[in-house]
Design a protein around this nucleic acid. Sequence first.
DNA 1: GCCACCGGTGGC
DNA 2: GCCACCGGTGGC
Length: 389
Amino acid sequence: MQPSLPKFTIKIKGERNDSEPLMPSSLSGQAVISGTTASVLHNCKREEGIDINTPASQDQQENNLPRPEKANSLEKERDNSSNIDDDDDDQDCNNAQNQLVLYNPPDAVSDDVEFSPDAVPINFMNPSQPSQLYSLQNSVSRNLPSVGAFTVQCAKCFKWRLIPSKEKYEEIREHILEQPFVCEAAREWRPEISCDDDPDIRQDGSRLWAIDRPNIAQAPLGWERLLRIRGFGGTKFADVYYVTPSGKRLRSMVEVQRYLLEHPDEAEGVAMSQFSFQIPRPLQENYVKKRTPRIAFPDGGTSGTPGSSQARPLTWVRPEANTDLQLGMLDYGSPYQIPEAVDRPGASYQAPLHEPGDRPAKRLKQPSGQMYNGGYTYMNLQQDEGRRT
DNA sequence: GCCACCGGTGGC
DNA sequence: GCCACCGGTGGC
């Protein structure tokens, strides 16, 4: 990973730059996920701005979620040096790394985002400048959910701050572990912001949040990392694609490596460590269909679900009735671990070349203890409700 | 015909 | 159970 790449500028579709507003041109009420780095918000039962009213899930939450004391050394260092109050407010949130990112399409913002009085007008919301990036990112034709906003949580006050652009978000995400986000960092686009201000956004159940992976390298200059959210009830939550400078979409490290070999002109200065196909996780536990066991029955059928118990119908619980989107309900599996070979700063991708059909070596996972905090991204899935039942 | 999207599977 | 990869295909 290259520690500090220049700001990512989309070149594929012209002259975007970081100061341009990111604007979905044609998605109404959609959200686009793209990354976030958040963290142990899970343990923050009384997370600022988030009303958690799901006692039923708390046990599960507490059992599954990483506890602050398990935080890795990096986190511990940060905790030790941070100014986080140790009062009762933080007893469940003493991990200094609750960050998240979220980007809100203007359409959705007014309806779905509960802005505090002074958390205003974020400069990226400029309806007069449709984003080519978004038109590129969103498959409006298929009515899929997409990332609506990028938000990062302040490591000190735990309030969510909207990030004005995907580029800025990716920039923050790239170094989120070494440089935890704090409200003051948002002064770059909101000069007066501080931890004293109300959160920019709260989890109100109107959107789906997803945890992003931290420290994902920004795409090389001229490349774009796309996150496509799949429909509800599918076998997978999302896909990551890298769009090459020439517009080709690559969908795996194998394809990236092959492409770079075949296009040495575009490979110059590009390292495999600048790519990561890791996808966020939806906080809604049942967003992704469980995989059915691959067990053959004597009669030739497949099973695991003689009574269809595994293939339970996936019903989308409407926000007003669903509290899964709230942090207290999160069903986290094991804590994320940082893939050593790819996502750690200074690491490099070491997979050998493969013949077609071959499977590349799996990326190594960090030994236990390398737990980190993820992020959250909002998704508005209204267009996708009831797609599968 | 292309390709965005989805499902399925091997491997861990 | 998760992840990475890739084949199939429906929609355009």
